[in-house]
Design a protein around this nucleic acid. Sequence first.
DNA 1: GGAAAGGCCTGAAAGC
DNA 2: TGCTTTCAGGCCTTTC
Length: 290
Amino acid sequence: MAWPIGGGGMPELPEVEAVVNALGGIVRGKRITGVRVLRPQTIQSMSVTRFCRLLRGRVIERVRRRAKFILLDLSDGWTLVVHLRMTGGFVYAESRRPFPPTARVLFLLEGGARLAYTDIRNLGLIRLVRTERLDRWAEWRRLGVEPLSRTFTVRRLEEMLRGSRRAIKAFLLDQTKVVGLGNIYAAEALHRARLSPMRRAESVARSRARVVALYESIRETLREAIAAQSTGPLHLEFVNAQGQSHHPRRAPSPFRVYGREGEPCPVCGAPIRRIKQHGRSTYYCARCQT
DNA sequence: GGAAAGGCCTGAAAGC
DNA sequence: TGCTTTCAGGCCTTTC
């Protein structure tokens, strides 16, 4: 089967969560002693000169996640916001080994360690904002509900679904509704809920049982994916002082339908189909997803 | 204002 | 063998 570029997992909520947890354990409390921007276009909202000047000397106090954004809260009220998009990732190195050519920004840390932001396709973005002004950022304000939070309820999902004539797959990808799902986990959640990706969102809302099934499938899909990341995040590589690299091995496909065109549905055995929806591949079982 | 299409981006795979 | 085309998908902008 064809694997997506990037090593078997686009960074959706579970992958970002894994990076945040691992990164937090390494860089929390460390001071940034220098910054080198190798690709200026990666830096948003301010000049490279200002970006480097503002970062130098600040301490990374906390690493957290909102939607698919990685947030590094720094001393003096600044936050470094990173979005990996498709192929972004980090390499943390304790040695002087050269970074890969895909390194876009280098953060020099006290003690000699270096953290590189890498990105093959250059779709990822980094911006530095005042923590207190995050809410003034339009894109930030538009972000929808966190699916694993208490504020995400069956009732809230039902209200969002109601009145939307879009296909449910497109609805799930809309980050202004529910955040964190991408093309892979949207397909997985729909298979688990036994809902056709072509079904209109509003038609899901007409059945309480369907809304509950979708609600639970979203949470279970994400929780299982987060647990599966426990061996180590795919988007964070470690290089020790001896220059030896440790990068988690790609596990066999953990997906029920994604990337499994032609293989039997794990529920009913019918062949998994692949269709195009809004320019994206959608994998589903035509027999048990209705 | 909602929905859909197009574009960005690069490397692997497919097609010729 | 080597060149060209297609595809992967998150998210923005443009268009309807």
